[in-house]
Lab assay of single mutants.
Amino acid sequence: MQIFVKTLTGKTITLEVEPSDTIENVKAKIQDKEGIPPDQQRSIFAGKQLEDGRTLSDYNIQKESTLHLVLR
Rank of each mutant, 00 (worst) to 15 (best):
Q2N: 09
Q2H: 12
Q2V: 15
Q2M: 12
Q2W: 12
I3V: 05
I3W: 02
I3R: 00
I3K: 00
I3N: 01
I3Y: 00
F4T: 05
V5R: 00
V5F: 05
V5P: 00
K6R: 11
K6S: 06
K6V: 15
K6W: 07
K6H: 14
T7D: 06
L8H: 14
L8T: 13
L8M: 12
G10D: 03
G10N: 06
G10S: 02
G10I: 06
K11R: 11
K11D: 07
K11A: 08
K11W: 08
K11F: 09
K11G: 06
T12K: 07
T12D: 00
T12P: 03
T12N: 03
T12M: 11
I13N: 00
I13E: 02
T14E: 07
T14N: 05
T14F: 06
L15H: 03
L15R: 00
L15F: 03
L15S: 03
E16G: 04
E16T: 13
V17I: 04
V17E: 00
E18N: 13
E18R: 14
E18T: 13
E18L: 14
P19M: 11
P19F: 05
P19D: 06
S20C: 07
D21I: 05
D21W: 12
T22P: 03
T22G: 01
T22K: 06
T22I: 04
I23L: 08
I23S: 02
I23Q: 00
I23F: 04
E24C: 06
E24L: 14
E24H: 11
E24S: 12
N25M: 15
V26C: 04
V26E: 01
V26R: 02
V26W: 01
K27L: 14
K27F: 11
A28S: 11
A28P: 02
K29I: 06
K29G: 03
K29E: 00
K29P: 03
K29C: 05
I30H: 02
I30Q: 00
I30S: 03
I30E: 03
I30T: 02
Q31L: 11
Q31H: 13
Q31Y: 15
Q31P: 04
Q31D: 07
Q31A: 14
Q31N: 11
D32W: 09
D32K: 11
K33E: 09
K33Q: 12
K33N: 08
K33F: 09
E34C: 14
E34A: 13
E34P: 04
E34G: 08
G35E: 05
G35Q: 06
I36T: 08
I36S: 07
I36N: 05
I36K: 06
P37E: 09
P37D: 08
P37W: 13
P37I: 10
P38A: 15
P38W: 15
D39W: 14
D39K: 07
D39G: 09
D39T: 09
D39P: 06
Q40N: 10
Q40T: 09
Q40E: 11
Q41K: 07
Q41G: 05
R42Y: 15
R42D: 14
S43P: 15
S43R: 05
S43E: 10
I44W: 14
I44V: 11
I44Y: 15
I44A: 04
F45S: 04
F45T: 04
A46F: 15
G47R: 02
G47D: 08
G47T: 06
K48D: 07
K48S: 10
Q49V: 15
Q49S: 11
Q49K: 10
Q49R: 11
Q49T: 14
L50H: 01
E51A: 07
D52V: 03
D52K: 01
D52A: 06
D52N: 09
D52P: 09
G53R: 07
G53S: 12
G53I: 06
R54E: 03
R54P: 04
R54W: 09
R54G: 07
R54Y: 13
R54A: 09
T55F: 05
T55M: 10
L56C: 02
L56H: 03
S57V: 07
S57K: 13
S57M: 11
D58M: 04
D58T: 04
Y59L: 05
Y59A: 02
N60L: 06
N60A: 07
N60Q: 08
N60H: 09
N60D: 10
N60V: 04
N60G: 14
I61E: 02
I61R: 00
I61A: 00
I61V: 08
Q62P: 08
Q62H: 10
Q62Y: 07
K63M: 09
K63H: 15
K63L: 05
K63F: 06
K63R: 11
K63P: 15
E64Q: 10
E64C: 10
E64N: 15
E64T: 05
E64Y: 15
E64W: 14
S65W: 06
S65G: 05
T66H: 14
T66D: 02
T66I: 13
T66S: 04
L67S: 01
L67F: 01
L67P: 01
H68D: 06
L69I: 10
L69D: 01
V70N: 04
V70E: 09
V70S: 06
V70F: 12
L71C: 06
L71E: 10
L71K: 08
L71R: 08
